[in-house]
């Protein structure tokens, strides 16, 4: 049982790390702001989500698990809102100076 849980954790966290890596590569390599924001949200949503899922297998007690899920949901909300704002500004032709 222990081994199975650890294996699931390693798999999910590794998958999450992959999305973070892909998102970072996208952030560095994509040509314009909208594509970069798109790459970044993948890292935030899927990468962090998978890491949280992986860590859920290691938590002791319901409360710790709920806290982890709350962290993910709050990061989702903040990430979605901020990327929307950045995308709107980018579409309007860059920040006002």
């Amino acid at each position: 049982m222990r081994f199975a849980l650890d294996a699931l954790t390693i798999f999910a966290v590794a998958a999450g790390a992959f999305f973070f890596l892909a998102g970072t590569v996208g952030l560095l390599r994509f040509p314009d702001a909208l594509s970069r924001v798109h790459a970044l949200t993948k890292a935030d949503n899927l990468g962090l989500g998978l890491i949280v899922v992986g860590l859920l297998f290691q938590t002791e007690g319901l409360l710790a698990g709920l806290k982890l899920v709350a962290v993910w949901l709050l990061a989702l909300l903040a990430g979605a809102a901020v990327t929307q704002l950045i995308a709107r500004i980018a579409q309007a032709g860059g920040p006002r100076v």
Partner: peptide, 13 residues
Amino acid sequence: GLLTFVAQLLVPV
């Protein structure tokens, strides 16, 4: 607006 929505949702939390 988006910020209004976020503020209403996030601030109580």
